[in-house]
Design a protein around this nucleic acid. Structure first.
Lengths: 203, 203
DNA sequence: GATCAAACCAAGCAAGCGCTTGTTTTTTGG
DNA sequence: CCAAAAAACAAGCGCTTGCTTGGTTTGATC
């Protein structure tokens, strides 16, 4: 197989195995077997097992950042940013479920510098969401009683999606994101207010 | 050291290591070293490394179930159950942070039957929350547009707490639970309505 | 169809893994 | 104070780990 194709295949198999068995629970021979080559032959394509983990998590981080950044930097109202951001977030998870799982669940297995790089991307992602929340407050679209706490709850809920999202489920990523936003903006009871844009009116 | 004391110490050290480095990332010699004995001496107290993981996760599951069950089975209004349930949930995490982390993060490393036991406890816990949500709907305290989705979001947010809760933080577990409930019931903007009991009025 | 680099295989190394065994030390109860 | 029991040690076994090495096959290029 061609160099690039094989490398991508290895990354995909590694994502699959890491997301299901964890980084330390996945052995280099598991990856080679899934890739259809011997374990020694892997090292024509990678330098180390940890390289695989880093590349998967690093790409995952970039996917989230690249999706959210343009939304944050746009000129839309905060609630629209909020809803578009959630839509982007859900879509990234839906389209890269295994990589996203590794990004959220296994990044701590990285050592030192590489772990720090991923940590920084996670921090940056959190900061982007903080900007959205802060933006809405400055524009008077909402008043948060505790911005930091709100951000943590929002991210916990959103980042937990990888644990239950299944592509064969009956909700599309867009619908998931909309319900997500409705609940977070208006509460679980789905109170409809003047503040809601593109809410759950068709349900 | 006495048999019981040593065993508890080993469980605690294992919880600490598992929660920070993961089950597969923690070696039996790490645990013995942290416990101040040689690795072989561990086996006077445990039967296997996996026994430790099972005991930690099993106790964790029981802690959550024992805290929530009496609340669900009480006769209080649904919103009170909701708030008391969240308070119990946060308290269990706060008082058993490392065990809770292992329960949420490492239980999948268990093999077969034991994994199934933990899975069933997780399912039961989720079902208890479903009863609370359903209860509020039957009593007319709220109308959920999607009960299953609401439950998943609620649990994602609540279960994610172990990732950012720090005992040295400035919010007490009770305050965390109250803000949690306020946001989930009324939305991030903290709209105060007739539905709110014991809300964030003192903030 | 000779060339040559990329891709792969076959074999295995050094280190580390979970755990066992046989022995010594420490604790405990009469 | 002594014997039984519990706890810990010292040593290492059989296996697996991530990775390396040296040689062979494959496939594109001229």
């Amino acid at each position: 197989m061609s160099r690039k194709g094989r490398k991508e295949q290895i990354l995909q198999e590694a994502s699959h195995l890491f997301s299901h068995k964890g980084y330390h629970g996945t052995k280099i021979r598991d990856i080679s077997e899934a890739s259809g080559i011997l374990s020694g032959s892997l090292y024509a394509h990678i330098q180390s097992k940890e390289d695989l983990l880093f590349e998967i998590t690093d790409r995952g981080g970039d996917a989230f950042l690249d999706a959210l950044r343009p939304i944050v930097e746009s000129e839309a109202p905060a609630e629209e940013k909020f809803r578009r951001g959630l839509k982007a977030h859900v879509r990234v998870i839906a389209e890269n479920l295994e990589a996203a799982t590794v990004f959220f669940h296994e990044w701590k297995a990285l050592t030192d510098e590489r772990r720090k790089i991923i940590q920084e991307k996670r921090d940056e992602y959190e900061a982007l969401w903080a900007r959205i929340l802060d933006d809405g407050e400055r524009r008077g679209e909402w008043q948060l009683t505790d911005a930091k706490f709100t951000r943590l709850l929002l991210l916990s809920a959103a980042n937990g999606l990888y644990q239950w999202y299944r592509p064969e489920g009956d909700l599309t990523p867009e619908e998931i994101a909309r319900r997500f936003a409705d609940i977070l903006l208006n509460g679980v009871a789905g109170k409809k207010g003047e503040r809601t844009i593109g809410g759950c009116e068709q349900v």
